[in-house]
């Protein structure tokens, strides 16, 4: 490149490798673009007001996905409500309280193991633990997802707790505050950004989850409010997509594409939110 004295073989190698790198990046982008384009083009025309505002009716032979949308919202809310205190609490223990290094290593190893377990295994254990004891319902699905998302929330909260300057804690201790008071008034407000990021990441994961929910949350398409919904079985958007994709009845394929388009749009929104939150908090912590 810089000089012409390098041999032809080396020049060829450089050209080839550079070309392959660009090609690989182009393939990655191309696949992403194709997926977005294909799903939106096939799906958006099928997203009608009737589809998103009614429920499945075998009598009229119409498909509506309002129950599935609501179930997804319910299960995200329920999971986050349970996983946040658990995950943030665990992170606080690890960064503020833990003295025993070996215990910290054990907890972190457990979190890593948990984040590597495939969702079908979570689904199976969730079925044994929750669905077989109190029936398959959204709550059983949410509890399964709590176990699944615990490492994510814990990790992000931990990262942001580490950014709270040690001097803040020392200052509070120097004024005579007890440990709990320091945690509550100094440390916790500092990890808001980690909690928000953790929430966004978990919401994205819950939105896309299907294997863990199939045998825990059930496959019903009934319309419920939040509390009765938690106690009764219900399919989320992803599960509904899976069910409709295999159903031969008229309109099912269109419905599954419509759901895919909605899921794709929500994925875009969540990615954008995660990027914006990351940028916002970085700017704030730089001040």
């Amino acid at each position: 490149m810089q000089n012409s004295s390098i041999s032809t073989g080396r020049k060829l190698y450089i050209r080839l490798m550079k070309g392959l790198c660009c090609l690989s990046a182009a393939i990655t982008c191309g696949v992403a673009l194709f997926l977005i384009g294909y799903v939106l083009v096939k799906g958006v025309p099928n997203v009608t007001w009737e589809l998103v505002s009614t429920k499945l009716s075998y009598l009229d032979g119409t498909i509506g996905i309002l129950p599935d949308i609501l179930n997804t919202v319910y299960i995200i809310i329920a999971t986050l409500l349970i996983v946040l205190p658990l995950g943030v609490g665990a992170a606080i223990y690890l960064t503020e309280y833990a003295r025993n290094k070996r215990l910290v290593a054990v907890i972190e190893y457990a979190a890593e193991t948990l984040s590597g377990i495939p969702s079908i295994i979570f689904g199976l254990v969730g079925m044994l633990l929750f669905a077989n004891t109190f029936g398959s319902c959204l709550l059983a699905g949410a509890l399964t997802l709590v176990i699944m998302n615990l490492p994510t929330v814990m990790r992000t909260a931990q990262e942001s707790l580490k950014t709270v300057p040690q001097s803040y804690r020392e200052g509070a201790f120097g004024l005579g505050a007890g440990k709990w008071r320091v945690v509550r008034t100094v440390v916790l407000p500092g990890c808001v950004d980690g909690v928000v990021t953790g929430c966004i990441l978990s919401a994205g994961r819950i939105l896309g989850e299907s294997a863990a929910l199939l045998f825990t949350a059930g496959v019903a398409h009934t319309l419920n409010d939040f509390f009765s919904g938690l106690g009764s079985p219900g399919a989320t958007l992803t599960v509904a997509l899976y069910l409709y994709a295999r159903e031969p009845r008229p309109g099912a394929a269109e419905a599954s594409f419509a759901i895919a388009a909605i899921l794709m749009a929500l994925t875009l929104v969540i990615n954008l939110a995660a990027a914006l939150a990351g940028r916002y908090f970085k700017k704030r912590s730089a001040l």
Binding site: L35, Y38, G208, E209, S210, A245, L263, T267, A274
Partner: peptide
């Protein structure tokens, strides 16, 4: 584009 690929639900991959 990469983080979008990571976020797409697996059933959507299955459907396409």
């Amino acid at each position: 584009a990469v983080s979008l690929l990571a976020g797409i639900p697996s059933v959507v991959y299955g459907l396409v």
